[in-house]
Structures are given as C-alpha cells and as structure tokens.
Amino acid sequence: MFLKNLYINFKKYSFLLQQLVSRDFKVKYKRSVLGIIWSLLYPILNMAVMALVFSNIFKFSTPGVNYLVYVLSGLIMFNYFSEASNLAMGSVVANFPLINKIYIPKYIFPLSKCLFVGINFLLTLIPLYVVIFATGTGVNIYHLVLPYAYICLFVFTLGMGLILSTVSVFLRDIFYIYGIVLTLWTYLTPIMYDISIISSKLQIILKCNPMYHYINFIRRIILYHEMPSGFTFAICGLSALIVLAIGLFVFKKKQDKFIYYV
C-alpha cells in the first residue's frame, strides 16, 4: 500500500523532483567564475592536499598501489556521503514555508538533495579516471561492476538523509551534533590510511562502518584489479537496504507531525 502510493506520488511529482535537482545545480554554479569546472577541480585539489599532508608529513603509504588513486577513490565516496547526508538533513526544515502552504510529498526534499549531489558525484568520476590513467593504474573489466557500489552508497545515504531530516524537525541540535559525528566518521573511515596500520581490535569496529565496505568494494576493483568477494557484495547491499528501510519507516511514521514543528 505504502509502496504503491509511493509510486503514484513519485510519478506525479517526478517533474518537481527534476526541477528541484536542476535548481540546486543552477544555483550552485551561478555566481562562480569557473562554474561546473569546480566539480572536477575540487576533488583533485582536495586529493592533492591530502596526499601532500599524509604521505609527506605522516609518511602514510599503501604498498603495492598508488597512493593518489587510493586517496581519491576514498575521498569521492566519502565526500558524496557527507555532502548529501548533510544537505538532506536540512532539506525538510529549509522547505517548511512550502510544506506549510501546499501538499508536497515530503520525502522529495531529501531525495532531491541525494540526487543532486549524485550528479556531482558522477562528475567527480572524471578526475578519478584521469588520475587512474595518469598514474598508470589502468582499468580492467571489473570496472563494469562499480555502479553496484555507487548504487549502494546512494541508497545508504538516502536512508541516512531520511533519518536525519526527520530528527532535524524535532531536534535542531542535530545540525551541530551531526557535524561532529561526521568528523569522527571521516577518521573512522580508511580514506587516507590503510586499514592494516591499525590494531586488529579497532579494525573490527571500522568494519562495522558501511562506508568502509563501499570504499573497499571500489578499491578492490580499481587498485587491486580483482573482483570483490561475495561477502563484500552482500554486506554492501544489505547495509544499504537496511538503512534505507529504517529511514523510510521513521520518515513515514513521523512525517504527518512535521507540520506542528514549523
């Protein structure tokens, strides 16, 4: 019943969704000189800074694979997650003036943010492949499986966005709390270091982090030229679906109450 309604709603409001995504896109680049080039430049510059700091100052390295590709592949995945979940979190509260005036399915706001950052994410794949080729890492047939990890990442992030946007309605403190959580999360995800450098106890904790598995999935393919294990496939898909299910449940249960907190 819920799913059927969701589908009907989705069909009716797909034009609005598209407008919201394109609005975000236009607004993002409207007043910058380089515009969309920033989407390509930003991850590269980010990677350069990270690589400079961590490989030269902290002497991090990843034996056998290129450190630049290692950092960038982790970075684009995690940046997608942190940016999309952050924007999705604030999207319902930001649209209160609309929600208070007209019926719009409310999930459309976090969804549009996740899609908008998703398009940006696809653009960051361009610099990723530039670095892959420039460093001589090269591609392989398994690259065709990569979209699986991207979809898992999207589904997971959407679930998180739904949970966070619901919480933000009732507890505005979440904007600050989540900022801190994200910082912690960044360090608990092996983006610029290899998981083998930390103690095996801590590794177990890190492996409870779905972001680790999505990043690990693409690194297996991009860096190590091998198919991810069946376990990795399963845990990526399952963690994403579970979080999305929780997100849908929480959001659906609470969405009629949003209006009282406008």
Partner: peptide, 8 residues
Amino acid sequence: YLNGAVLG
C-alpha cells in the same frame, strides 16, 4: 517552471 512544479 520551478514554482509551477511546486504547484503540481
């Protein structure tokens, strides 16, 4: 277009 979409 945006406002029209909002209005359905």
